[in-house]
Design a protein around this nucleic acid. Structure first.
Lengths: 187, 187
DNA sequence: ATTCCCCTACCTGTCGTTAGGCAGAAGAGA
DNA sequence: TCTCTTCTGCCTAACGACAGGTAGGGGAAT
């Protein structure tokens, strides 16, 4: 396992947390999945709070890189806005999982402070990127970018939550389509 | 405590579940809050799954009655649509709590089947009522009522989730305002 | 010789749940 | 009216499972 054990743990913890939340993370289950013993995880993460914060941080770092790459690749802000919901869609397709940030927002009251902060980071990254892309696309007035970005992020999160409770990705697609038809998302 | 002990348990469980989820429900804590012993709860609810299902069921029954009363009182569908988000707003004001259905949608993978079903009932009640009121108000074409209702429900849920993660009710208000400005909600 | 990574063994606490009992109210029969 | 029985609502005590976390050691690599 060697030095990438830490990365393996992070990846496994992320997948579990997206399905069962921070509360659903268990050192024993996690260790079994990775192929080591529960106590050994403490060599990499000093506490569950540390692990949770690391998972959440890595989560928004990854998404930030992915979103920036999308903009760089297409060079087309309108196309980016069309593609944006697919990130959330993929979680649903991958075992009906939720955005980690949404799960942690629900669990908010049970989370250590450090984990709360990192979970908010994900939302911040999404909102900042959306605001930028919305303005680039000329979809909103520059002064309305932030507010619209927050609305889109919240609405897409809600759509994912609803679709998950039905175990039906097509519900997500239908909701996004309605967001477009109603004007929340650019057509 | 006598015969209303059951109701007292239901009410306490609902409040706890809206703050900490189904997983955060504990027979011991609940009993302490109600003023009896943990084992005594089994006299009223045969298992935690039973309790969870009863709480969720009562939750959507209450909201169904509340929404119907709102429509009957005002007699004005547009006013109803304006008031709709206040139900979610109240949870946030009351200790930054979440809609029980949203919490349970997040916890979906950990829930007993009976609880899953009752949680979906809440969404169904909301969507049905919204669809009816939207069509009454002439805000959408009759054939688009259901889809738009789902979109509004999902978006408002997402707004509540986002505001909770910031412990800031004004974030919720701002999101609803943006939903209106963008056309998702009737102005 | 030290550091890194992982181990066994065990701690305390909490969980849902069960077995069995006890006091009081309620209803029935004399 | 007085007993006898049954039911209701709650209790104490304990079970096995699992949680996060700790102490201390072993073996391999530097």
């Amino acid at each position: 396992m060697s030095s990438n054990a830490k990365e393996t743990i992070l990846a496994a913890a992320r997948k579990t947390a997206q399905a069962h939340g921070y509360g659903g993370l268990s050192y024993r289950d996690l260790a079994a999945e990775v192929g080591i013993k529960a106590a050994s995880i403490y060599h990499h993460f000093a506490s569950k709070a540390d692990l949770g914060a690391a998972v959440a941080r890595r989560y928004w770092e990854d998404i930030a890189a992915e979103l920036d790459a999308m903009l760089a690749d297409t060079g087309d802000p309108l196309e980016c806005l069309r593609l944006y919901p697919t990130t959330f869609r993929r979680s649903l397709e991958d075992g009906n999982r939720l955005c980690l940030c949404s799960f942690m927002s629900a669990e908010y009251a049970n989370l250590p402070e450090a984990v709360q902060r990192e979970a908010q980071g994900f939302a911040d990254v999404n909102v900042a990127w959306l605001a930028k892309v919305l303005v680039m696309a000329g979809a909103v007035k520059p002064e309305d970018g932030e507010a619209r970005a927050r609305a889109i992020f919240a609405a897409v999160s809600g759509a994912q939550l609803y679709a998950r409770s039905r175990s039906d990705v097509s519900e997500f697609d239908a909701l996004i389509a309605t967001y477009r038809a109603s004007g929340l998302l650019p057509a």
